[in-house]
Design a protein around this nucleic acid. Structure first.
Length: 465
DNA sequence: ATGTGC
């Protein structure tokens, strides 16, 4: 594998073997990942119908089949494929940011009380129930079609929330018939729950604003308290991925598709298997959005009860999704796995009030480090995409071996960050030392021309899944 | 990521 530095923030993985396009990785030298992730970038470049390049964002790291931080688009008319591995197991995993009517100085004396309230009000960990008890299978079906919009319709939020959700709170074309009974069962009682792993609800403060006008348009000001929620589609999305990978593995020989890694299982977008996955994926996307809507409501209740304060939705984005988009007159299936759509100013998909500024992009850091609010920029590199987070450098196992959960909790508390965990092991696996430096990832993303900085947020308290 | 692996 030959990797060439084209510019300070752009590396090219040369085409070789069965690669149809080159790989392009946006990163600094220091952030360029280990060979394994670059090999995955090259593997993705072999997929039928892939256009442009197999892209990697600055937080690129090894994942299931596709790398995390990967973007790949296929041309539907040219037999382009869709691959569940290009979306990931946690379909529609994403981030929601809410801004409070209080500043950090006002919160300080009540922080522990607020965290205790959130600790009780935010279900988390594997398997447990969520804050919304759905009335049976038929209501779950409505939610899979309506996403956050259905949640708001049922009184879980205000209509204004939807104007600040990507796709106004729901993606079209959810096909519930493509969601297995097993996936439905797993999803039935998890709406409004964080899950585990790197999922969290964090109380933050705006530490620095880089662009006053854009921050104001997004509803943010220096010193303001915020809530950031990072979660996905729980067991339902996971089961959908599992089910459809299995179907595609079997179908691939029929379409004459060969891939260098069986985890790249795929099928033409324009095929029964492709359409079936996309329909089920859309249902999971709506589940993820409803999940974040309900957790936002749980945060609102805690802020109202403890502080008499309100929370306005800043934005809600997904960083694990495939989307049918038009680029240069072609209909493409754009896979973003650990990558965020970042629409430029005046893009037709943006709501009018955000159009002058570009799409808000929310980047969660790690526990104890900063998070960022970014905005999309003109240029359209990697089909209008940017990074999604800090990006792991250590496996969960390595991380858990490096530090004890209680020690980590004490370290964070000593930095003034209140911690409400689920398990000690889970906390240790998420030690900030297991991740890349989020500030460096943002610097590379901006340097590569993928986005611009709007605000930097710092953690005050974390509810860890 | 995941009722955490066949």
């Amino acid at each position: 594998m030959k990797v060439v530095e084209e510019t300070p923030y752009r590396f090219r993985v040369e085409r070789e073997g069965s690669m149809r396009v080159p790989g392009v990785v946006f990163a600094s030298r220091r952030l360029l990942p280990e060979d394994q992730a670059l090999r995955q970038v090259a593997n993705v470049a072999t997929l039928p119908g892939i256009v442009g390049a197999s892209y990697g964002m600055p937080d690129l790291h090894w994942g299931y089949g596709f790398p995390i931080g990967g973007v790949a688009a296929t041309d539907i008319a040219e037999g382009g494929v869709v691959s569940p591995g290009g979306v990931g197991f946690d379909i529609s995993c994403g981030v929601r940011l809410l801004a409070a009517s209080v500043d950090r100085d006002e919160l300080r004396p009540r922080l522990e009380a607020l965290m205790d309230h959130l600790d009780r009000g935010v279900p988390r960990g594997t398997g447990r129930g969520g804050v919304w008890r759905l009335s049976g299978r038929s209501e779950l079906e409505k939610l899979l079609h309506g996403g956050a919009a259905y949640a708001v319709e049922q009184g879980h939020g205000v209509p204004r929330d939807l104007a600040r959700c990507e796709d106004y709170g729901a993606v079209a074309d959810a096909d519930v018939a493509q969601v297995s009974a097993k996936a439905m069962d797993r999803g039935q009682d998890q709406v409004g729950s964080l899950g585990s792993g790197n999922h969290f609800l964090e109380v933050q403060a705006v530490d620095e604003v880089y662009d006053e006008a854009t921050a104001a348009a997004f509803g943010l000001r220096t010193g303001q308290v915020c809530v950031m929620i990072h979660c996905g589609s729980r067991g339902l999305g996971h089961q959908i991925c599992t089910d459809h990978v299995r179907v595609m593995e079997k179908a691939m020989p029929r379409y004459g598709i060969q891939v260098p890694d069986r985890q790249l299982a795929c099928a033409p977008v324009d095929s029964p298997e492709g359409r079936s996955y996309l329909g089920a994926m859309a249902a999971a996307a709506n589940y993820g959005r409803a999940n974040r809507q309900l957790l936002g409501q749980a945060a609102r209740r805690a802020f109202a009860d403890v502080l008499g304060a309100e929370l306005d939705l800043v934005y809600d984005i997904s960083h694990n999704l495939a989307k049918i988009e038009e680029h240069d007159g072609r209909r493409l299936c754009v896979h973003r796995k650990g990558a965020t759509r970042a629409l430029p100013p005046h893009h037709p998909d943006l709501p009018e009030d955000l159009a002058p500024y570009g799409q808000p992009v929310l980047i969660p850091g790690t526990m104890g480090t900063a998070s960022y609010v970014l905005a999309g920029v003109p240029g359209g590199q990697a089909f209008h995409s940017t990074c999604h987070g800090a990006g792991r450098t250590q496996s969960r196992h390595q991380a858990a071996r490096s530090i004890d959960g209680r020690t980590l909790r004490d370290q964070l508390q000593a930095k003034g960050i209140a911690v409400r965990g689920a398990t000690w092991r889970g906390l240790a696996e998420e030690t900030p030392t297991a991740y890349k430096d989020v500030d460096a990832v943002i610097e590379a993303s901006v340097g590569a021309g993928l986005c611009r900085k709007v605000a930097r947020l710092v953690p005050l308290g974390v509810v860890k899944g």
